[in-house]
Design a protein around this nucleic acid. Structure first.
Lengths: 140, 140
DNA sequence: TTTGCAAATGCAACATTGTTACACTTTACA
DNA sequence: TGTAAAGTGTAACAATGTTGCATTTGCAAA
């Protein structure tokens, strides 16, 4: 399936209108693949893209489960496109991310399983994220 | 050992001067125990505490390993006092934290072990944090 | 195809947090 | 007890998050 088609499908699945900003942003996420990108990075790439609209676009995408937030230690919130695996889990976040301290990139590690930790009995676990950091292969 | 003594010891260990702000902030962390607190929370509690000084105090405490940063999904950076266990690991961050979506508190789970994930061979892992969220016992 | 309405956008405005520079104050030690 | 270095407070600015409101746009029904 080509990119345009995938974008169209994702928006339909999320019951979102097809607008130029959304298509543009979604294309970025599809191209980024497993790399989580920040609002800042998208802003820099498209200088005439309104910051507030972008903020709301990301928020909307997250709400409908097109993207998920990747927590990392940089303090900057980043997002990555959800894999199919993600959507089959009813958009629960059980992601592992690796943050490279050198290139500051965050990549989703779909193949790393997060074990269920044994919490106190009365705690109700909803999401879990494993935040790893260090130096990635490309930077060594 | 009483609190004053512990504060004094921690500052000496970090080779930091004993000042009123530092003693005040450190006392908060000791009282908070395993609960991670944000700059904002400390600010609210002590209204005449200078925001920038607090920022630098937290930064300094983190650098010398008195406190560690707790990543959570709130976007607000939080810190908690390091357990002895923490300092014996040369201040590497291998923490598990639970964030309650209701009371917005973050607690350190010292007893939850983070398993070493199998990363691509050329990745160099330095820190790992397990970020759990849901509803805590007190809020149910 | 046109049209109306809800959704989406862009702008203004403001809050919070992070960060540095610089002058002033305080601590700790000689 | 005086002094140098460390710490503090003020100012100033950047980045990001967030809401209100007027305008524009997408889309579906007429």
């Amino acid at each position: 399936m080509d990119v345009e088609q995938r974008i169209s499908n994702l928006l339909k699945l999320g019951k979102l209108r097809s607008t130029s900003v959304r298509k543009l942003v979604l294309k970025e996420f599809l191209e980024a693949g497993t790399t989580a990108i920040s609002s800042y990075e998208i802003e820099k790439k498209f200088e005439d893209l309104d910051r507030i609209t972008l903020y709301r676009t990301l928020k909307t995408f997250e709400e409908v489960g097109i993207i998920h937030q990747a927590v990392d230690v940089s303090g900057r919130s980043k997002y990555a496109i959800c894999s199919e695996d993600c959507s089959t889990h009813q958009h629960e976040d059980h992601h592992a991310h690796f943050y490279c301290k050198k290139c500051e990139k965050t990549v989703c590690l779909d193949n790393v399983k997060i074990p269920r930790p044994n919490l106190p009995a009365d705690f109700q676990l909803e999401d879990s994220q494993l935040v790893l950091s260090g130096v990635c292969g490309a930077c060594r």
